[in-house]
Simulated assay, not measured.
Amino acid sequence: MTNCCYVASPVGRLALEADGEALTGVRWAGAGERARDNSNLSPVLKEARHQLERYFARKLKAFDLPLAARGTDFQKSVWKMMSEIPYGETATYGGMAMALGSGPRAVGMACGRNPIPIIVPCHRVLGSGGKEGGFSGGQGLPTKRKLLALEGVVLL
């Protein structure tokens, strides 16, 4: 059974999803989604909501949550590598691809399929030369820029 709650954020209303003991998804809530009663949340959703609120208040730089992202082994290796990019820093698709013995497009595709954005920080992955690359969440690149600016990253 999936449990869900919503969090207001500077990049839009987020829906947090958990299954059992781990967070399984963060997505931008659709306009027609009605707020649910947040009084009976699982402990992991309460903690995820709390950590996201602290992140957006610039009081949290590293998330510490149990995660259960569903994907291929390659996608999971990309998501693990993204999780290791420190707050306020960036990596490149090419650099990650080289470390994984893959290609930049494959890394970009895995970033785009990240089911737990923000917490697994795909917004910290850029194209070569500091180019933005892409972003599949929220409003796309404007959302990526907002998240990077929140962390103090200045794009060229």
Rank of each mutant, 00 (worst) to 15 (best):
K59A: 14
L60Y: 08
I116W: 00
R49F: 04
L41H: 04
I85H: 03
A31M: 14
Q51Y: 02
I118P: 02
L52Q: 02
A97E: 01
N3G: 12
S42H: 07
A18S: 13
S102A: 14
S83E: 09
Q51P: 06
K144M: 03
M82G: 02
M82Q: 10
A62E: 14
S42Q: 09
C5T: 15
V11G: 04
L141Y: 00
G20D: 11
A57H: 05
K59V: 06
P104N: 00
A99D: 06
T24F: 07
R113D: 11
L45S: 04
G152I: 09
E47C: 05
Y6V: 01
K76E: 10
P117H: 05
L147Y: 03
P117G: 04
R13C: 08
H123N: 10
E17M: 12
R105L: 12
I116H: 02
R124M: 05
R36P: 05
V44A: 06
C111H: 00
H50S: 10
Q139S: 14
R70L: 11
G20Y: 11
G101M: 01
Q75G: 11
A106W: 01
V153M: 04
A48H: 01
G20I: 10
H50T: 06
L65F: 08
V26W: 03
L23C: 10
A69S: 12
Q139R: 15
K80H: 11
G108V: 00
A149S: 14
S39M: 07
S9P: 07
A62P: 00
K144H: 04
A22G: 12
F56P: 03
L45K: 07
I85R: 03
Y6E: 07
G134N: 09
W28H: 15
T24D: 08
P66V: 05
L16S: 09
V125F: 02
L60I: 08
V7I: 12
S102Q: 02
